[in-house]
Design a protein around this nucleic acid. Structure first.
Lengths: 200, 200
DNA sequence: CCTCGTTATTTACGACGTAAACTTATAATG
DNA sequence: CATTATAAGTTTACGTCGTAAATAACGAGG
């Protein structure tokens, strides 16, 4: 038998391919991420990646997972940079927005509406779960400090839906030209905080 | 010369093609909407649509416009079905959610993150503007009745971002399994109403 | 009826994802 | 050490896509 690939070699190739895909996404947009371009980037034949990934969807799932991982990292760093719960929420929110706008190709891919069921890709489930956990942690801060009443998971999702909704409307070009995206985000956050503070 | 196409014949073909595309979207998903399938559906050759549309993007823009038109119709009907401003907002919201979930392929297409700039497609601008106007009108009701304070356009976008955000997270399969989508929407709306009512 | 301009079809090209056949190189066996 | 089985990687090929270019069909004006 030939040099059987060690698990670490497999992992290394998968990571190199992922990095190449991210580079192509960021520099030439989604339509540049083709099996042939990826292969060229790695100096390998177009069929080689199929030894390491089931198919292109499998590759995209890995790229999504890697995106969610960087996303979670950014939010965790923001989380740790503040102590006051409202300031923590604001910092996490800023990190969120920053990621979505600066790495918008990654963000688009991560939240694509036509992606296969993420349950089929365990590392994607883990990575996106980690990002979600950050938002729940931040919501818990608001609750523990009395800034909000209710279930932390629900509150996290309310804030998340708002932020994500505004961002994707912006990215899709659907916001009214009369509405400034970042003013909208500020108004949304203020409004939600007011609503969450009430205990009736 | 042969029967030169009258504007009405052109319009008729465009509408037939649009209807065929919507049928394909709804019945067989986005990947079924190909030039060849469309042509088959219309009993015409694959190149014929190019006499009526610039390219496939132009066709998709027309399908989006038609989707926004039905969407606006649904919200307008809901708007007229109630008189109390909060009930109006709830009815419009229900119509919105109903459309997004029952015609989710259309909804996905309409809010796709990788669509070309809608400014290049005037009928799309008009149709999506009509839908947006409905949300502003509904926000005005909340303001006029004292349920909310602020700029109607901003308030409309706050509510819109929330609803849209929750829906696309649901459609992308990103909501926590522990969170019920419709409970989330109720909690979001209640929270926003509370926040909007405060005048400080 | 012929001709010319418009509409529609046919044919063809390059790119895509990937299945299948084939080549290459190494590690275990005799 | 030579042989051979087999995993890794490449080549080739297929069917599909959007659409450009060449071609055909056809109906109104001379």
């Amino acid at each position: 038998m030939p040099r059987a690939l060690s698990p670490s070699q497999v992992e290394e190739f998968r990571e190199r391919l992922c990095a190449a895909a991210e580079r192509l996404f960021a520099e030439h947009g989604p339509e540049a991420v083709t099996m042939r371009q990826l292969a060229l980037e790695l100096g390998v034949s177009p069929m080689t990646p199929y030894r390491y990934f089931k198919d292109k969807d499998d590759i995209l799932a890995a790229v999504r997972a890697s995106g969610f991982s960087r996303f979670a990292d950014a939010m965790e760093a923001a989380f740790r940079s503040e102590t006051d719960p409202v300031a923590v929420s604001e910092a996490v929110g800023r990190a969120y927005v920053r990621f979505a706008l600066e790495q918008s190709d990654a963000y688009r891919l991560m939240f694509d509406l036509s992606q296969p069921n993420e349950a089929d890709y365990p590392e994607l489930v883990a990575a996106s779960g980690r990002a979600r956990e950050m938002m729940v942690a931040q919501a818990r801060g608001l609750i523990d400090s009395g800034q909000a009443k209710g279930d932390p998971e629900v509150i996290a999702h309310i804030l998340w839906a708002n932020l994500h909704g505004g961002l994707v409307l912006q990215l899709a070009g659907k916001l009214s030209p009369r509405v400034d995206p970042s003013a909208l985000r500020r108004a949304s956050f203020q409004t939600l905080l007011k609503g969450l503070a009430r205990d009736d």
